[in-house]
């Protein structure tokens, strides 16, 4: 989609966000994570939401939102500035070797900043980078007392029943027992 067209939509969205849509539902707030280079099927996101969760942050489409801050413009070394931004203003991701800046700690910080109730790990099956990070991220969540669940989804399926069940159980357990 051309940026110009996208900007028009964005402006509409910003307007919509400002409007009053009544009271928010009694849902829990979750961060979803799975090191998504692309967007997972919309059905998966909808299933999580319909099960009683507001997705308050995510790591979808990492590639197209990699630099999360401005590239330094006042420099004689523009290439260096891009590299610096790429390295230092990027999200936590399984594509990054993280010694010194552990992804687990960054995830917990994100959960706190978004006042999330928990984390849903939902990497695509066979996604080695995301799945190999999972045990470590879970360890950080456990240490910080952040509730979490995990499931894998299979790309190209429209089957989200199990995901809905798991997300629903997760939402209930936080709403009723935390």
């Amino acid at each position: 989609m051309p940026v110009e067209d996208h900007n028009v939509i964005l402006e509409e969205v910003l307007q919509l966000i400002k409007e009053d849509h009544g009271e928010p539902m009694d849902n829990i707030r979750v961060v979803i994570t799975g090191s998504f280079c692309e967007q997972p099927p919309i059905g998966m996101l909808k299933s999580i939401e319909m099960a009683g969760c507001y997705i308050v942050d995510d790591d979808l489409m990492l590639g197209s939102r990699w630099t999360q801050g401005d590239v330094d413009e006042n420099t004689v070394d523009p290439l260096g500035a891009i590299v610096t931004a790429f390295l230092t203003k990027s999200p936590a991701s399984s594509a990054v070797y993280d010694v010194g800046n552990p992804k687990g700690a960054r995830l917990v910080k994100l959960v706190r900043r978004r006042e999330a109730d928990g984390v849903i790990f939902c990497a695509a099956s066979f996604c080695d980078p995301a799945l190999l990070d999972r045990p470590e991220l879970q360890k950080f969540c456990d240490a910080a007392g952040v509730a979490h669940i995990n499931f894998q989804f299979h790309e190209n399926t429209g089957q989200f029943k199990v995901i809905k069940e798991q997300a629903g159980t997760f939402s209930d357990s936080i709403k009723l027992w935390v």
């Binding site: 990497a123 099956s125 066979f126 996604c127 080695d128 799945l131 190999l132 879970q138 894998q152």
Partner: peptide
């Protein structure tokens, strides 16, 4: 048991 997915590289 330590949390690794059934789908990831079995060498690892």
């Amino acid at each position: 048991k330590a949390g690794f997915s059934e789908d990831v590289c079995t060498y690892v």
